[in-house]
């Protein structure tokens, strides 16, 4: 089983240089829920060089409607372990690092940043305060692609050092903690995030100072200008 064969269908489209950029990239995926499942699966199948998976939760029954990395056999297992096992079954050309840490634990986050280098961060978290803490991983040259979902809508944007999701979400509350969501919007927003991560890897982000807003009910898609500069 060769990597050239596994990745042949998209390398035909992307070409050698872009495949090299993907292969040499290292991405942190923060939050291995619905969005994290889609982003991990797609980045892995694209052939990114390294995925650093962060989550501190276990797989629970209500996760199975949308968290496509898991099955009923994973209930009770740490998400980082279940996700890493599932991905490793696909191929062996991506290095997987797992970190079962709480994003809100500043010391753990700093230790992770000191131990691993990475090009970008996928914010697949499920609450605003953790997202604000995740921004502590941002350094110059590192991008963060943010996604969020609720009901049947969601949004995606890119930030980097000097921009903050606080400028957009400050004032919003994290309650109720359980957010209703249908699985199909998770797949869409996760896929949009993956594309924007790839855009960033290629040095061509499309959503810097723009917010993609997708509403599934009538298939409406908008790009709204935002100013997220600090």
């Amino acid at each position: 089983m060769g990597s050239s064969e596994i990745f042949s269908r998209h390398s035909m489209f992307l070409g050698e240089e872009k495949m090299r950029l993907i292969r040499e990239s290292s991405i942190v995926v923060a939050g291995l829920g619905g969005l994290g499942s889609v982003v991990c699966d797609s980045l892995y199948r694209l052939g990114v060089g390294k995925l650093i998976l962060i989550d501190n939760k276990k797989v629970d029954l209500p996760d199975l409607n949308r968290q496509s990395l898991y099955t009923s056999r994973d209930i009770g297992q740490a998400k980082v372990k279940a996700a890493a096992d599932r991905l490793a079954d696909i191929h062996s050309y991506t290095e997987i690092i797992t970190a079962r840490i709480d994003i809100r634990d500043e010391n753990a986050l700093v230790a992770l940043r000191d131990e691993h280098s990475f090009d970008g961060i996928a914010d697949c978290l499920d609450n605003y305060n953790s997202r604000f803490d995740l921004e502590n991983l941002l350094e110059s040259e590192v991008f963060m692609v943010h996604g969020g979902v609720k009901n049947d809508f969601g949004q995606v944007t890119t930030i980097n050092k000097g921009r903050s999701l606080r400028t957009l979400y400050q004032g919003e509350q994290d309650f109720p903690e359980i957010i209703p969501v249908v699985p199909q919007i998770v797949k869409i927003i996760g896929s949009v995030m993956t594309q924007e991560i790839v855009n960033n890897i290629f040095g061509e982000p499309q959503l810097l100072d723009k917010l993609v807003i997708f509403e599934l009910a009538d298939f409406s898609l908008y790009k709204q200008k935002v100013d997220l500069r600090l």
Binding site: G148, K150, E172, V181, I213
Partner: peptide, 25 residues
Amino acid sequence: HHLDKLNSRVQDGDEIALFPPGGGG
């Protein structure tokens, strides 16, 4: 929230967006 909340001034040519965000992942 970062301007003057409900007292924020709006000028000719400004664009207002009303956006319910999705907070989940």
